[in-house]
Design a protein around this nucleic acid. Structure first.
Length: 856
DNA sequence: TGGTCTCGGGG
DNA sequence: GTGTACGAGACCA
């Protein structure tokens, strides 16, 4: 009998010894100490359908095989099928063997990663605990204590082992400041590090590639090579679980690897001798560090739907999310700082590392991924990628339990074919456009698609196939027929994998929410992350069904879900209108907007709850009262704004709620946003359309009188490439060119953002872009007509149009003072091409017609 | 209104 | 590594 060790599974992989795989489990013990477990003797296998041709091939190739019974994932199956289970020695041989066998028969689970094959077969899940039985060993294969595993079993519900965080930010000395750093030439001169817990009692540390007299947590080295060697030493000594940073996948890690290789240094930064892998494809990059988890704060933020930033640079993210900012230095100043102000350089470097780690920790960005890993069984590193791997891991565990086999990933050709099979979306009810000043209730179906899957047993393994020989026999079974015609065997006869998993997820979520009520502090936050993770997982099944690259894609299944959804909302609308005599003015996928004859919020809520309860009972899905609009302006489907009231405990909180109506856009000046918001506020809260119109008139008057501050008229856009690389004509680029001619030293460079105003003149619009400060100094007049007709009016007009206010009325209409001639207001077109006669309501940005003719 | 193209972050 | 996958916003017919 050996000894036992409890570990939380952080990562897993395998390596080859004498052509045979050894599984490596990187775990964390209860005291936080890392442990690397080795498991020998687990071999790769997969399944292939049984037929003559396959049997011949198996014989030819002398493959180790066994005839077994499994359920195929092709609709509802009443019996098991005979398949061959092929077992190999080396996982790397699988693709070749699979390719050969696939010519003769369908293969299953032949592309399940070997580490997941092992984990699923042993009931292990990422970030869950396991009890290892075996003995400690001395090993050179791991940089942490080794353990030879004889057997292992999953263990439930232990508290998380504390994680060690390590944050990195590199600075390099660019030889060409107008281009991205080049790892072939530009050396790394400084590295900012941040730690949790502390490293040698320091929260942060800056490594410099030259001797310097700087105080604080700084280490200086004589060369870049020594700097890099020190970095490797520190990583090994600190032994992090999480390696993080801002855009490390896109920049720091690949750059660092290039420089390490240049000096012939090791790129193994994990818990064994495996080199760090940095991969780029299709604009997204990833990093793999054996035994640790690479977390790119930038990528996490960009994919987090709960925070939307207008830019995703570190400065913006830090300002918005943790109320801090970078040391105010442009990257072009780095060489000067490095040469002349090493103290400032050091603090700049340190701050970037600190900001990134603080974003991760203070915003608790990893919490829900850890919970997703535990529930889905995916390794934490893989959880950071996408939804598909989470669902498929979760499904694979359940398939294994039921003797079902998983289809292979579709080929590119197959995926392309699937995209042609269009999936129809949710129902959007035709809205009653205009301003509604009666109380409008919003009722929502809670977790609509998961509920549909659960209620109607929607799952590929419950789908009754028409093509099967015994289809008439199958039709005798109790089943549900979806509005799209797809039929699913009744859940009482056989419960599909998706419904089972969703039931478990939703039940676990209720449990987590219940436990949250009596928890506090950290425990409460973990539970909140858990309930959120459970919700995300339950909601992702629908998307998965209709995702062309999903192993279990099936358009009838995805279409069945939305078809049920559409039928459901229509039936609910009819029921509400008939039973309660209330008018449904709008609805989208899982929500209904209902007018009620009361102005009292509490009374409105009571009615909402009554309707929701009655409709839920009638329809069989759970409808819930969500919020109230005191007034609602509907422009079109998916575009509306309302004065929203939501109950928070005992009080009603109000807010302006906008959907699909943009008040902020990159190519709008802030005046437009301000006026939009003013107009919506007046219309919705004061319900005074006349006053809103007057407000717009007032702004127009100020504009033509030159009373609007120039900052409100400035549009800011970024220069993304070198100026000669732009072929079209764009205002901010034209301005940058002008400024370059005036003073090349201060003019905008690649990566800078340029603010411009449009001044009066006869030239092309884009050529009339001007630096606001320059315009002020030279006393240049702004092009008021442009600001009125091209910036302000188009979005404002769309709002006033549904309110029944004509453009002419906004522009002064009749006896109103004509401060400025706005052109032919109210007329259909204001400009026409001299040559071809094509008409425009506004000057096109290019200033001329596509035929080349001039406009008049 | 849709369909294709570009670019993001980092220094 | 038994893997090869983005997504929002700008521009254009």
């Amino acid at each position: 009998m050996g000894m036992k060790k409890l570990v939380q599974i952080l990562d897993a992989d395998y390596f080859l010894k004498d052509g045979r795989p050894i599984i490596r489990i990187f775990g964390k013990q209860e005291n936080g100490q890392a442990l690397c477990g080795f498991y020998e003797g687990f071999r790769p296998y997969f399944y292939v359908e049984k037929n003559e041709a396959v049997a011949t091939k198996i014989k030819e190739l002398r493959l180790e095989h066994e005839e077994v019974q499994r359920k195929l994932p092709l609709g509802y199956q009443t019996s098991m099928a005979d398949v061959y289970k092929i077992t190999l020695e080396n996982p790397q041989d699988v693709p070749r063997i699979r390719a050969t066998l696939e010519q003769s028969g369908k293969c299953y689970e032949a592309d399940v990663l070997f580490k997941y094959r092992f984990m699923v077969d042993h009931g292990l899940r990422g970030m869950n605990w396991a009890e290892l039985e075996g003995e400690t060993i001395q090993t050179s294969v791991a940089k942490v204590p080794g353990f030879k595993i004889r057997s292992l079993t999953p263990v439930q519900n232990l508290t998380d082992s504390p994680l060690r965080y390590f944050c990195i930010d590199i600075e390099c000395l660019q030889s060409d400041l107008s281009r991205a750093p080049d790892a072939k030439r530009d050396p790394i001169i400084g590295i900012g590090l941040a730690f949790l817990p502390t490293y040698r009692n320091q929260q942060s540390l800056v490594l410099l590639a030259k001797p310097a007299a700087v105080t604080g947590a700084v280490q200086c080295f004589r060369s870049e090579k020594e700097l890099l060697e020190a970095l490797l030493r520190i990583i090994e000594e600190f032994d992090p679980d999480i390696i993080t940073g801002y855009n490390i996948n896109g920049f720091d890690v690949p750059y660092l690897l290039d420089r390490l290789k240049k000096f012939g240094l090791s790129t193994a930064m994990g818990r064994c001798d495996k080199p760090v892998m940095s991969k780029t494809f299709a604009g997204s990059q990833e990093t793999e560090i054996a035994g640790r988890v690479a977390v790119d704060v930038y990528q996490l933020l960009k994919r987090d739907v709960s925070v939307r930033l207008h830019r995703y640079n570190l400065d913006t993210a830090a300002k918005v999310l943790i109320g801090q900012e970078k040391v105010n230095v442009k990257h072009t100043e780095i060489p000067t700082m490095w040469a002349k102000d090493i103290a400032r350089f050091t603090e700049y470097t340190r701050k970037d590392a600190l900001l990134a780690i603080q974003l991760l920790l203070e915003r608790r960005m990893l919490g829900k991924f850890i919970e997703v890993a535990k529930i889905s069984g995916t390794l934490l590193q893989d959880c950071l990628k996408g939804q598909t791997v989470r669902i498929e891991t979760m499904v694979l565990h359940e398939f294994k339990k039921r003797g079902l086999v998983m289809p292979s990933r579709p080929s590119d050709a197959e995926a392309a074919k699937r995209i042609e099979e269009k999936i129809k979306g949710g129902a959007v009810l035709e809205p009653k456009r205009g301003l509604h000043v009666d109380t409008v209730l919003v009722l929502d179906f809670q977790a609509l698609y998961p509920s549909i899957i659960k209620t109607f047993n929607v799952s590929i393994d419950a789908l009754l196939l028409d093509s099967s020989a015994n289809s008439s026999a199958l039709s005798e079974l109790r089943h549900n027929t979806a509005p799209n015609g797809a039929r699913f065997v009744d859940g009482a006869v056989y419960e599909g994998v998706f419904p089972t998993l969703i039931k478990n997820l939703l039940a676990a979520r209720l449990e987590a929410k219940r436990a949250m009520k009596i928890a506090s502090g950290d425990e409460r936050r973990v539970l909140d992350a858990k309930q959120h993770a459970l919700k995300i997982l339950a909601n992702s099944f629908y998307g998965y069904c209709g995702y062309a690259r999903a192993r279990l894609f099936r358009s009838e299944v995805a279409n069945a879900i939305t078809a049920y959804g559409r039928e459901n909302i229509e039936r609910t609308r009819t029921f509400v209108e008939k039973t309660f005599g209330a008018q449904v003015i709008y609805g989208d996928t899982d929500s209904l907007f209902i007018k009620v004859p009361t102005t009292d919020l509490n009374e409105a809520q009571r009615i909402g709850e009554e309707i929701a309860a009655a409709a839920s009972k009638q329809i069989g899905l759970h409808l819930e009262f969500e919020k109230i609009y005191r007034s609602l302006l509907i422009l079109t489907k998916k575009r509306y704004a309302g004065w929203k009231f939501e109950r928070k405990g005992e009080i009603w909180e109000d807010a302006l709620d906008m959907r699909g109506i943009e008040t902020v856009r990159r190519d709008w000046c802030t005046l437009v946003s301000d006026v939009m918001l003013d107009v919506l506020n007046i219309v919705l809260k004061e319900r005074d359309v006349g006053k809103a119109a007057q407000h717009v008139k007032g702004v127009l008057r100020e504009l033509s009188a030159g009373q609007v501050p120039v900052e409100k008229l400035t549009v800011v856009k970024g220069i993304t490439r070198s100026l000669d690389a732009y072929d079209g004509i764009q205002p901010h680029v034209e301005l940058a060119r002008k400024m370059q001619k005036r003073d090349p030293t201060t003019s905008p460079k690649v990566g800078d953002r340029v603010g411009y105003v449009i001044i009066r003149g006869k030239d092309l619009l884009s050529r009339r872009a001007e630096d606001p400060e320059y315009a002020r100094q030279k006393g240049l007049q702004l092009d008021v007509e442009y600001y009125v007709n091209s910036q302000l009016l188009p979005p404002i007009e769309r709002i006033f149009e549904v309110l029944g206010v004509e453009k002419g009325e906004l522009l002064g209409g009749g006896k109103q003072v004509n401060m400025f001639d706005f052109g032919a207001a109210g007329q259909q077109s204001v400009l026409a091409c001299e040559s071809c006669g094509r008409a425009w309501r506004r000057t096109p940005l290019s200033g001329r017609c596509e035929c080349g003719g001039t406009l008049k």
